[in-house]
């Protein structure tokens, strides 16, 4: 088990979210549900930006309570602001190796290689403002790739892209996962995204995250809450 949520609950004012399930290594899990349902909150919990109020959260069998975000085996891509606007593409990626950016020649080469892998060959010197929205998220992906953490969390980083570009990005992610063997947790509001990449899907609504189910089965026979969301 790469991720275990053990009778876990978090509360923020009136809002509460609970989950009690686990995920096997290599799974690609989509989190789907209405906005405001707690999808991003769940990713923030796993990444360590909050702690659960009750229960436990384990990654690779280790209880994560008190473990700082930077020490968790996790990479998270946000919807936006994944890059520092005043640092070049290469430096933004390089942060994934050493936050103080004192990189060796080999590490520089690794940066260039990972840029290559996301299709941004030779763009290392550009500034984020010179890139398109899709390119910017590719840079963030290159950094995640370089960090090589077993758990990759996507908080709708491709939501702002067009359908074709989004599909392309998802395929890119799928390809990368194939190679690294990492586990994916991905927030989405579009069932087609889930179908495209995720073998499992969990529904987040009414303060609960249901246990993951095979995506095809869930979408073929959606429970009431998901039906309401899908319309």
């Amino acid at each position: 088990m790469i991720l275990q949520l053990d009778k876990m609950t978090v509360r923020q004012g009136d809002f509460s979210l609970s989950a009690d399930w686990s995920v096997k290594r290599g799974t690609r899990l989509a989190l789907i549900g209405p906005s405001g349902g707690g999808k991003s909150t769940l990713l923030s919990l796993i990444a360590g930006f909050f702690e659960p109020d009750e229960g436990r959260l384990l990654i690779e069998g280790r209880d994560m309570r008190g473990v700082a975000p930077g020490r968790r085996p996790v990479s998270l891509l946000f919807q936006e602001n994944n890059l520092f606007p005043h640092l070049s593409v290469a430096r933004n990626v390089g942060l994934g190796i050493r936050p103080d950016l004192r990189l060796t020649r080999e590490q520089h080469e690794a940066v260039e290689r990972s840029l290559q892998e996301v299709g941004l060959e030779g763009m290392g010197a550009r500034m984020p403002a010179q890139l398109s929205g899709g390119q910017r998220q590719r840079v963030a992906l290159a950094r995640a790739l370089l960090r090589d953490k077993p758990l990759l969390l996507l908080d709708e980083p491709f939501a702002a892209l067009g359908p074709a570009l989004r599909a392309e990005m998802l395929d890119l992610v799928a390809g990368l996962l194939e190679r690294t063997g990492a586990t994916l947790l991905m927030v989405t509001h579009d069932p087609r995204d889930a179908e495209r990449i995720a073998d499992q899907t969990a529904l987040v609504s009414d303060g609960k995250v249901t246990p993951p189910m095979p995506t095809a089965r869930l979408l073929a026979d959606p429970p009431a809450a998901l039906r309401a969301y899908l319309g």
């Binding site: 923030s44 930006f49 602001n81 994944n82 520092f84 936050p99």
Partner: peptide, 17 residues
Amino acid sequence: PAEHFRLAAQLGMTTRD
């Protein structure tokens, strides 16, 4: 943006970074 501080946390940046 709040993401930048989160990103920094995730990348394990020290106070100096």
